[in-house]
Design a protein around this nucleic acid. Structure first.
Lengths: 211, 211, 211, 211
DNA sequence: CATGAATGAGGATTCATTCAT
DNA sequence: GATGAATGAATCCTCATTCAT
């Protein structure tokens, strides 16, 4: 089934915007530049988005949806929680690897969530962000119930995981991709899992390993 | 010894700038606003800084110096590495607690380090940032040598710690300070330490606890 | 054939700029004033010129082209050199008479050619100015070859003529047009021609007159 | 007799201003730059001049006075008019040769006399300029009375001479001093004198030459 | 007298947004 | 639907002028 022309153009704009916003940030990115990249006239952008801010927020919404999809898919897997966390890390890192731009767009924005001068961000973006966190927290909760994960605040665990992944991507970008993302990713996985597992589970794992 | 008038004014500007940049980001922050807050005329800013960008970068430099100071102080403590890490987390979190603004300024900037359109950032800020990371990594190296920390890339460990702290602050800001930063801080400490300790060390700790 | 809208607007801006620059000079002339006079918004100027300086230099280029045209036309006439010089003076004076503004723009600029702080002026304006001088010098050379003009440096003769015309216009402007430009123009013509003619030619002229 | 300190500083400022105004023009020249060059503080300028404009006009007044002095001195010589004109050209050219700056300041200003947005210029500068012209015209009048100069408007003759000298200096500056000023100066003298002499006088001169 | 830090009005330039075609 | 010319509000930076020391 072919996507309608309208939807194709919307996507072209969003892709162009992603690159532009990633490179320069919201204020410094130019609509002209986005239009050029999308091979459309500047005025045409307004047929698809109400304003620069609407375009920006729509982009973040769309991108966050992808993360929610990734997390939901992992949630639905039939393996146990530790396994799900490993999958989640792998999938999210892989997604960022081919989508560095969103990292450069979202991380700045998240830091300014509380005092942002884009009031709409609170309504359109924060809920989606929380949804992703909550889905991750659900996995943590499972693990706690299963006795595999320490009985800590699952939301906090979800944030911790997200923070580790974020830092990993930031380092990778700073090193300009010189270091293998996969290798560092495994280190982070180890730290996080060893950090959150119950003593019980660790032994198990160790025994499993020994087997 | 009293600070000279010149230095006092410089600091007034930097403080005003910190608030403004934190609230709106580099581009959207107005020099007029900064001048107003510093109770100076707009033109006066230019007696202390060459441009908006110079003010911005000077601010980040000064603030990063504070982090470097904190980390250096911890490095010089005479306790062992695990203890140093605990202190480091505590001191950094405490510093962010009274200095939320810098979090909102630096995190966005760090995400865009590679593609930033402030070219001077590479020379003026990134080296300082790396210095902080390296100091933290030094503590990690000590721990590894002492056999207390898993033999992982110390730089990566430093990034991991920084990522966890960052996420912690981000969550705290998002929750608008409703949750105790100290409590979450302890959770993060636990996760990180358990995640990086050698099996040996963990036993020791456990045994210690049992005692 | 009607001029395209684009070209018409460009000319409206140049005309507005001519008045403004003539009245106040480059620095003191305001783009807002130029825009108002051209019945356009300030920002619109930037659709036609890259900067205030570009507008200024474009204006001078266009105006110098008119002088070059005048001089080239005279060059191509089929009369002898003395006659051409008379025509040249008449046509240039007539052109200045309806275009006082350019005199007020170019004369100041010419005086500062060597030390100008508009570096592009060297590339964009001086060559055109020299071209005009060279065309005039060509006429002088003809006269010298014909034996009608003293064998002096033709370039210097061209400058001398230009200087006489300039001073004439300056006086006329200073007198606020109270004196007939045509009459003074004839005096200047007499002085210049009698000053440059060979003794031979002077006799001829005298004899002709006597006839 | 030593000049008072006050007068010395005033002159230092005027000299500094001359260079600055010559290089950049009235608007673009900076008081800071003038103060630096005069080795004084910026504020000190205001102890000697009321404003930037006052400094500018004072400078022009002083410089015009020098030209008036030169012209008056020539006037008082006991030779006949043609000789005086030769002396005048020589002295003025010599003065410009070591005082190029004033050329770059005054010529632009003169072109804008009529529409200038410095209203005071009319009162402070134009009268002095006219005085210089009138003194030169006086010499012309003498020549006419002596029957040596054609019976043309002496004021116009004065302007013509000034125009020729101006153009000479302008060419010299444009050529960056590559050409000898003295040589071109003689050509201009020849053109002007041959242009204005009566037939009678020319014969005399010719005969004199032949002798 | 001399200073130079502080002022703030002023202006070139940019760019999101609109709208006639 | 699509365009891109036109708009003009918004903001960084400059610099003549003032005045407390």
């Amino acid at each position: 089934m072919r996507k309608s022309n309208k939807i194709l153009k919307r996507e072209a704009i969003l892709n162009a915007a992603k690159v532009a916003f990633a490179e320069k940030g919201f204020d410094a990115a130019l609509l002209q530049e986005i239009a050029d990249r999308a091979k459309l006239a500047k005025g045409t952008l307004y047929l698809y988005f109400n304003s620069k801010e609407d375009l920006f927020l729509s982009l973040i919404e769309d991108e966050l949806d992808k993360f929610i999809d990734i997390t939901e898919t992992v949630c639905k897997e039939s393996c146990h929680s530790i396994e799900k966390i490993k999958m989640l890390i792998k999938n999210i890192v892989r997604h960022f690897e081919v989508n560095k731009e969103f990292f450069c767009i979202f991380t700045p924005e998240r830091a300014g969530f509380t005092k942002t001068h884009h009031p709409e961000i609170r309504e359109r973006v924060i809920p989606k962000y929380r949804k992703g966190i909550n889905l991750t927290a659900k996995i943590m909760k499972e693990g706690i119930k299963e006795g595999k994960i320490k009985s800590l605040d699952p939301i906090l665990l979800a944030y911790a995981l997200s923070g580790l992944i974020n830092t990993l991507i930031a380092k990778w970008l700073l090193d300009e991709g010189k270091v293998s993302l996969e290798k560092s990713s495994m280190v982070v996985t180890t730290i996080f899992l060893d950090g959150i597992k119950t003593d019980n589970e660790k032994k198990t794992t160790t025994e499993t390993r020994r087997t």
